[in-house]
Nucleic acid binder design. Structure first.
Lengths: 199, 199
DNA sequence: GTCTATATTGAGATAGAC
DNA sequence: GTCTATCTCAATATAGAC
């Protein structure tokens, strides 16, 4: 797509700077990252950043909005696929881990800054899309309980949170450049979740 | 203990302020919390904080050091108990959830600020004690694999991380004042981990 | 699209009176 | 143990030249 001549809202330079900002936000935290550090890493002066972005906040907003809209869309499509719940759950987990592989820094920011960001009206979309995701995943687990694929005494909401938390917080130790492919990790997680670790 | 006349390093007022700071660090993040906000919540002026503490950093250091030393000690004792691995693992998970129940704010700070803090030499103890914890827990899982209690094809380190992440990140939604007791949540988590959710 | 130069604000921290 | 008063620095952001 980037090779077409189509006029786009985000220039390549803008995307480049956004990626740099995401890395810094992920490593040091949003509040602890200064616009000067972002500018330094991009090889420009801090004032020049404001040619591309209104503010530091608007950078993180753009990162999270794009990411959350994309992944929520993917969840929606998969949840509506009508496949059996075990398979759908496996695919949802894979989608999540693939998103970590593709956009590690942005996911880290979302995970690490979630509580801070949702306290600002500007970031209400974060909570809205997270809640839609919860409904989609819990729906799949409930379908699995009804179909008999999952245990009848399962608490779908707590099970979802257990899995969600374990997935997202793995950004803390997951190395996108390492030898573990996202889909392999996803399968380990789903394996543990489905059958447990007991003999 | 607080009713004795024994002279202690930490005055009650100091502990009170520390608890207030922990709540704010947990809710808004360490970097985003100002000393003025801490002072306001404590009903004093910002300058007065420095009668009790050297700096904002020393507040979070004291919170984390006390917490990590306490819980690591508890893990050590349990890991050395010689009970069967399933029981030890269950107790370790309960200890973790009980610590969330008892010191929710401090645990939140540790989870949320982990990556930021370990980048400063001053907080190297955080990483040291975390690594000791990992060795203890992984050791228990390995013992379980050898004894046949856990599956032979298990990756002990990845299993530990899966469980650790799921536990700690639950501070994001766990309400210490809610109706779920820490040990009940711990048992749900261990139940899922041991036997999975599949029928 | 970037630079120079700077405005403006708010942060952490300090000294000494009470 | 807290307050008054203030220092100092670093942060975000702006305006206009190039």
């Amino acid at each position: 797509m980037s090779t077409t001549g189509v006029v786009r809202a985000g220039s390549e330079r803008r995307e480049e700077i956004l990626a740099i900002a995401a890395e810094l936000f992920a490593e040091r935290g949003f509040a602890a990252t200064t616009v000067r550090e972002i500018a330094d890493s991009a090889g420009i002066l801090s004032g020049s950043l404001y040619h591309h972005f209104d503010s530091k906040e608007s950078m993180v907003e753009e990162l999270l909005r794009t990411f959350l809209e994309d992944i929520t869309h993917a969840y929606r499509v998969e949840a509506a696929s009508g496949d059996d719940p075990v398979q759908v759950l496996r695919t949802l987990v894979r989608l999540a881990f693939e998103s970590i592989g593709a956009r590690w820094a942005t996911v880290s920011v979302m995970v690490n800054e979630y509580n801070l960001l949702i306290s600002y009206p500007r970031f209400s979309f974060v909570q809205d899309l997270s809640e839609e995701t919860e409904r989609l995943w819990v729906g799949v687990i409930e379908r699995g309980v009804r179909s008999g694929a999952f245990r009848g005494n399962l608490d779908p909401r707590m099970t979802y949170r257990f899995l969600r938390d374990a997935i997202w917080v793995s950004v803390r130790w997951y190395q996108p450049t390492g030898r573990d492919r996202p889909e392999d990790i996803a399968d380990v997680y789903v394996g543990v979740l489905l059958d447990g670790i007991a003999n």
